[in-house]
Nucleic acid binder design. Sequence first.
DNA 1: TCAATCTTGTTAACATGTTAATCAATAATC
DNA 2: GATTATTGATTAACATGTTAACAAGATTGA
Lengths: 155, 155
Amino acid sequence: MKTTNGTNHQADIPADTRKSLPIALLRAREAVMAGFRPVLARHGITEQQWRVLRVLSEFGEPLDASNLAFRASILPPSLTRILKMLSERQMISVIRDRGDGRRVLVQISKGGEDLIHEVAPESREIYADLEQRYGEDKVKLLLEMLDDLTTKLSR
Amino acid sequence: MKTTNGTNHQADIPADTRKSLPIALLRAREAVMAGFRPVLARHGITEQQWRVLRVLSEFGEPLDASNLAFRASILPPSLTRILKMLSERQMISVIRDRGDGRRVLVQISKGGEDLIHEVAPESREIYADLEQRYGEDKVKLLLEMLDDLTTKLSR
DNA sequence: TCAATCTTGTTAACATGTTAATCAATAATC
DNA sequence: GATTATTGATTAACATGTTAACAAGATTGA
């Protein structure tokens, strides 16, 4: 066994980092986000806050924290902090669930919807550019493969 | 336009989060790492520290911080902190470059190599399981597609 | 040569990721 | 119905991500 740079002379260490799936996923994600982050930053919002708002907007009705965390791919401790921020900025409303005092119900408010409609055009533009650069069909295929991978590993 | 849950009645907001490439990449990465993290945790090391050690081990000779950061996909400020940790734990050695006093040269030490050889077998096992579940050929194809995407977006 | 500029690495400040512990409310069991 | 177990959310503690500012060494050019 021999790597391209020729310095790895041990046969029993892990595969080359260039062939590592976790790293490839990380780099791809970083490359994609490099396009979106400046747009979000211009609107004073982080990527995670944006995901929370989008999920809430898409869902359309109040969502409890666990459900929201799962859909936005954010861990509960992070979500707690994010909800605090978004609530202070009047983008969402948070209320306790009557009937189950443990649950917290989250709903997007006008401020949040307004922001979404502000950012949406730029966001679509970035995504369109991405599809144009990489190929619309390849984006679709990649999405299917990623989804398949996630499903097969989650059980 | 209409989403599956039927609650999104606005035609001008961003595409469904389920069809979002950033989120799909995030979820896939999370699903893959869920297998590796426990292994690394058992050895008292984080994912990023592991990446740094692997890059150093593969490269075989001293690497300056910028180069290391790039190869390990870690931002400079994070790397500074990680190097401090790994150095205290005797896994790497850090010295100033003679000839260019700004540069810092990092090299893996015996402690680091030992750890790599400890973790490697378990790591390979997890990866093999992943390839078996998802398909060896599909892993390869996915890696190529991710690499292609990263390349096409990085210019 | 020396002042302006660029480069490399670090520090700072804030947000999120990650795991474990905690707390309150509900559900389960007896 | 009181005790115990489980669940949903939060808090705590530490590591990393992210951007901006900074410090020190190297380069450049007048």
